[in-house]
Design a protein around this nucleic acid. Structure first.
Length: 112
RNA sequence: GGAGUGGGCCAGGCGAUCGCGCGUGCCCUCGAAGGUACGUGAGGAAAGUCCGGACUCCACGGGCAGGGUGCCUGCUAACGGCAGGGCGGGGCGACCCGACGGAUCAGUGCCACAGAAAAGAAAACCCCCGGGGGCGACUCCGAGGAAAGCUGAAACGGUGCGGUAAGAGCGCACCAGCGUCACGGCAACGUGGCGGCUUGGCAAACCCCACCUGGAGCAAGGGCAAAUAGGAGCGAUUAAGGCUGGCCCGGCCGGCGCUCGGGUAUGCCCGCGUGAGGCCGCAGGCGACUGCGGUCCCAGAUAGAUGAUCGUCCACGACAAAAUCCGGCUUACAGGCCCACUCCACUU
RNA sequence: UGGGGCGUAGCCAAGUGGCAAGGCAGGGGACUUUGGAUCCUCUAUUCGUAGGUUCGAAUCCUACCGCCCCAG
């Protein structure tokens, strides 16, 4: 997928400085995209080792990627980091879309 | 029909829409990016990283140390793997399990507690005989003995008969074990004869014997342009010191002169998938496997590609994600299918 | 992905074949009017788990499980 954040240094910066919005299935971090990276927004997906084995972690990232795609991301001017929680694995798609939308509004990345 | 043993195979299918990696063609473009069509896209364990290799770099001269394997014979590129055989153990059976060399004929060590004694057999307890003392229980001296006895995981072959004061392979029979000879087998070993009567356990204790073993690892290693800083080869030759990724001997470097252009990124590219390869057939072999012929091309990502929504069918889907590659081992696993065989019951 | 290390009481830990030391914390008691300090005492039955070797295993061997560190 185009528009992913590749550098772990940049992801660490969003962890320190970004807006945080947590839901039942995922945690969202939002920061402004640096100007030198261009006007398009970027996203990153995180699935920690606590979740489970490699199959479950990969699936969690895919499910979040599909949700971002449906919601119209990446969002211009914003760097978004999505962290999977264990509830995301069995979460229905419509529920996940709703949670992602509310998290984006809470962090201010999209207007009301 | 029930119970079971061994081996092999599969690992949700189909359709619609949106979406992803790679390859090829086409469109656009100076090119790239992009668009589009077609093809292709995780496993039997991809896992644990327990062994063995390939490949790459370093060291290449000898020795020691260290590590590994451990019944025999094969297979293999190699193996700690596999096959066949032997021995021991388990099961009524089909079958299954086994780190299974050496403990007199190398040496050292350990065997707590208990027990008379834990490994050159015997001091004392004890058994028995003779003599002395004492009314007696008993005790002292001398000779003989290791059978019985409590203990313990284990008591210098076992059981039985004879023998004796008590005993002892002292004699005999059978069994176990040892040595030796003959036969069968490539061998492990097996069968039979003969002999003297005999030797605790632990080598997953040190060790001995036989065989194998240099070190690191694709984050190995190499290439590309900009910016910043330092190496490599050759020649002659002295000290502190350093290197030779365990140690020693031995060897080399550091200092000087000449010559040559190189190294380093959370940049990119190569390495990177035609291989000890899959499938089919024939031939050899009990088998692991091998030979020959035909045929196929079968993931290659780089924050890491397979998902979402819906329909439909059924047994309602387990364990689980390639990261340099291959051969094994081990561990996890919902279920389903096939083949061969064993035992029990019933019918004909 | 590769390399290396560690699991013993709630915490820190010693023990390398024969009874699982010690300290901190905690419970109980003594002393004290009470508290602190001090002293005495208690607490491991699965030594991360499961097998094996041995008469005997935290210790030796094998296979698993969990955690930590290093290399871009």
């Amino acid at each position: 997928m185009r528009g992913t954040i590749r550098s772990s240094r940049e992801i660490d910066a969003i962890f320190r400085e970004g807006e945080r919005a947590a839901t039942r299935a995922l945690v969202l971090l939002a920061g402004k995209t640096p100007a030198k990276r261009g006007p398009r927004g970027r996203v990153a997906f995180v699935a920690g080792k606590k979740l489970s084995n490699a199959v479950v972690r990969n699936r969690a990232k895919r499910v979040m990627r599909a949700a971002v795609h449906r919601s119209g991301g990446p969002w211009a001017g914003w760097d978004i980091v999505l962290i999977a929680r264990s509830a995301a694995i069995d979460c229905p798609a419509t529920e996940l879309d709703r949670l992602l939308d509310s998290a984006l509004r809470k962090a201010g990345a999209i207007s009301q």
